[in-house]
Amino acid sequence: MADILSAAWLIARKDLSIEFRTRSAFFSAVVFALLGLVIFYYAWDPTAVTATDLAPGVLWVIFTFSGLLGLHRSFGVETADHAIDGLLASPASREAIFLGKAIANLIFVGAVQAIAIPALALFYNLRLGAVAGPLIAIAILAAIGLVAVGTLFSAMAVNTRLAELLLPMLALPFFVPIVIAAAQATAKLLSGRPVIEVGAWLKLLLAFDIVFVAACTLAYPFTVED
């Protein structure tokens, strides 16, 4: 297990170094998230819908789609000059490769969230100070599930001609239960309900995470065994 985690971290560090150098996917995702916020903001009628009712939906729509940009890049960097062959021919286990990619994606999505959540609070005049802890917990738990599913489908879609179309088509149906749970939990938090009421959604998110991370880690080797 230590070998798997050590190789996974090595792969994640390599992916993050590449993203840090190019910054292409990160900037795209951040710009997409901010533009999404702006569009929703100007389409919003504050007299018809309150900010606390609208913000959770906006937040999770933005995360879902901006996250897809990073997920697509995840295995995209491996296709140039068949770098994936070098990884697969190395002693790193398939599970370590998957987890490494997923860790890098999680940090990527986390970085986008770190910019998008304060921006959301700014646009919709939300006071997040009191609910910051539970909101961060929701964001992390939801990101883990989204990243697990998205990383697996990124690996499956990357070698197809329509990878950019196929990834959202495959991943979005599996994102739905996670996004519903995350949006419901966020809505309860922002509307000032007691944190205890969010507990059930957090447990559901945790259950999704355990299932998706385990299932996707076990399924990944089958996507690369030819």
Partner: peptide, 30 residues
């Protein structure tokens, strides 16, 4: 796999990284 070295007409390198980083990444992976 740890006993094998694979050379191909595809370089299997990461173009954003330097030669030292590419080779170092492989060394650590092994």
């Amino acid at each position: 796999r740890s006993r094998i070295g694979l050379i191909s007409h595809h370089t299997m390198l990461y173009e954003a990284l330097s030669p030292r980083e590419n080779v170092s990444f492989t060394a650590q992976l092994y």
